[in-house]
Nucleic acid binder design. Sequence first.
RNA 1: GCCCGGGUGGCGGAAUGGUAGACGCAGCGGACUUAAAAUCCGUUGACCUCAAGGUCGUGCGGGUUCGAGUCCCGCCCCGGGCACCA
Length: 923
Amino acid sequence: MSDRYEPGAFEATWREKWRRADLFKTREEAGAQKFYGMDFFPYPSGAGLSVGHCRNFVPTDVICRMKLMQGFNVLHPMGFDAFGLPAENEAIKQKTHPGPMIDRYADTYRRQMELVGISYDWSRSFKSCEPSYYRWTQWIFELLYRKGLAYQKNAAVNWDPIDKTVLADEEIVGGRAERSGALVEKKFIPQWFFKITDYAQRLLDDLDDLDWPDGIKNQQRNWIGRSEGVEFELRIQSETPTAKPKIIDLAADPETLVSPLAALTFRVFTTRIDTIFGMTFCVLAPEHPLVENLQVSEERRIAIKTYQEQARALSDTDRQVENREKTGVFTGAYAINPANGKPVPIWLADYVLATYGTGAIMAVPGHDDRDFAFAKKFDIAVIPVISPSEGATELNAWFKENESKLSKAEHQENGISYLSPFSTLFVPLPFVAKDGVLVNSGEYSGQTVAEAQAALGTWIEALGIGQRKVQYKLRDWLISRQRYWGCPIPIIHTKDGDLQLVPESQLPVELPMVENYEPSGDGTSPLAHIPNFVNATDNDGRLGRRETDTMGGFACSSWYFLRFCNPHNFDRPWDPELVNQWMPVDCYVGGAEHAVMHLLYARFWTKVLFDEGLVNVKEPFKRLENQGQVLGHTPYRYPKEGEQLDMGQEGILISFKEAETLPESEIFYRWARMSKSKGNVVTPDDAVATYGADALRMYLLFVAPFNADVQWANEGMSGQVRFLSKIFRMVEEYQPLYSAQWRDLIPFTEIDDRARKVRRLTHQTIKNCTQDIERFSFNTYVSWLMKFVNGLQDLGIASATTNELSPGTALAFSEAVETLILLLGPGAPHSSDELWSSLGKEGFTVNIPWPQFDSELAADDTVTLAVQVNGKLRDTFEIAVGLSNQEYEDAAKSREKIVHHLEGKAIRKVIVVPGKLVNLVVG
RNA sequence: GCCCGGGUGGCGGAAUGGUAGACGCAGCGGACUUAAAAUCCGUUGACCUCAAGGUCGUGCGGGUUCGAGUCCCGCCCCGGGCACCA
């Protein structure tokens, strides 16, 4: 063996030995505990892996390898998320078929993962585009359909004109398609949805018990967007416009009551029912169906139509511009505020969304920012009904006195400025805080917001015009894609326009292998233009039409973790016994960008499958960890005069080659996510060739906390080369004195002070390494190993061969060397095996039991006691552990330096933290 | 605007309310060497001081505590997510 880390000499050899020994085939020993460790399902891109990807799966590998050594049955699989837009787009660009292309790319991924020594059980691998897999994706689709959780409806959807497909809300960022960057357009076509909204509450509730990063849990909570409120009905009165709208007293006007218009109603949802007395207008979304039924003058009808068309033409981006000026149009109709019987105008405005709640709101400009902005622009009354509790009484009195002045007409003349007389009594409007008291609200005046919400909710329910309701922002999951490269939806449209499921026995509906699969661009899938595919016989033997949309890739990744438990089952998606044996995934590792897509969908499917009794877990991923990104040093140049920059860019991306040719004043560097297009990718191939796989692994672990971003520097790996070399040298030098029998001999050998220190260090290191791997603190895991090596050197292991060692010390060093090699195993498995064999041992360290720490051996017999005077550190000294508080106190007081600080002062208080610190409070 | 993270030496970062800066990188000084590489030893937060020693120091301002990087209140800055969701 060499006295340094020479990866070229042994790493590939060990990987070959692991492969031949089938070392990572999943062990399923009866009686052993299980550990399911998994990385996110990767899409194998043509660029291959970068060291950034390794940052994900090296740590997972470390924890899986430790669990293997601890005797767990470990399931550590890897497969490929092969269906979907990225693969199809890439294949179109390359003028090839996505199937074979993905196979090639996946092979590259696998080769690179093996190069880094990841312990995947490849016998369980699959790609989501294989019929043997997607057969069961379709099977689950059918299950959802039968349960009423999959449905088709004509919907306004997000249309990506570049990728020529429909996209889910989640795939749109700032009005642009996340993938293609295209401005998303609106399109009305029939779409398939999964009814995830039925599970909103459970998806929210069950987050509480998950061991996930708080950030991800919060993102999911926000995405689900639960809010509690009241939904109630408003009656409408249409009327022809007059110069000044007259106020209609419904009760006093029998005509309005018999008029068919009087029966017109619409519903609104509010979370602030306590502000109902302050409702001064209502707003309908432009798309609200009621608008067509309003009887209004021709003039108004035209204005309304114009506004509706404007709103429809508006792209989502335009509509979502920050602080956009409010727009709207008065419908000419009035609704009756049920709280006080007063009519309020009904407006149309696009700040109310058709897709949330009822698509209509009661507007309370006094206590809502948006309503206030709208009221201000269109000069609508603003009536305060909530006040900070101080001053509420005076305010109420003022309202009582001035009630007559508060008519609508009066207000319109005075704008909102009429509030100024009591501005001293009132905070500026809109007052949106909830810690206030009702004013100007009839019998509810004086109640707190919370009290009034309860009372008014009850009142609405008793009146029979509404009820308390919970609303969610979560929308149903849009699953269909008008594209070729995806899992076909197993549905046949019959002649009569009915939908039928393809019988289970006929699954999978296979994707036809065709040459031309490019998007048709007409809003239909390319599959619609393949007669052999489209023409199908329905279940009654008649000619029907096959559904030609395919499922988005998130369907495939919503259950793959179940298939890994039983990947080659031909008859069933999985054997429940096997799935229940392995599930849930104990540790799931991947990027934070999937917070509200994949992770929410997979949870939804798992719950549906749980309800069906097909799995016995309600949640798929017990623990989730997000790795930080690896950023590459990326050169840019400043723009030349007149040159256009992309949004948010400060310069123009250039290659490293180009950067070398330009003067320093014209270029600058930024840290950017590694990507092929930025040319800043460091591949594992390069890193392994130059520094070695173990050096790469150790550097990835050590460079930063697991979830923090990393600024990549190749030089960092040379530090790990140095550290590993140090270990090789140490083991090489100690090898002649190594005794494999240390465990048996130590009990019969005298352990001197030095031996005790060696053993203490060894056992403390075992404890710390085990704990830190468990809690994903890999950087400190590596640093404990470094301290271990440094410590053994300080204890003279290097001079062991030249100096006489006591038998006990020699055995203690043998234990230490062996332990070091085993603790190193998860991080640097090649080196671990190489060192292990250099001690004359057979086999692989991954099969050797993980070292056990002995708390007695790990315990210190002396401590460094810190002595503070008035909280300031004044002295430290070594003292035995296990003394009484009094003994520590006395020892501290007798220290020379301390005596000096105590001179002439009285000790008022003494705090003793046993074995740590004594704080003397003097005055 | 709302919701999450985060702010510690020249750099990456450590630190269950108890000795701030572990471990490493980079630097500096030295040993070995004809020389270099490799390796080893020492040193490295700032300031005051010949020294012993002392003062300050974890984004800013307050507070709780015998004791605060850590807890509380109020801000500032950076990163991420959501956003006219009633």
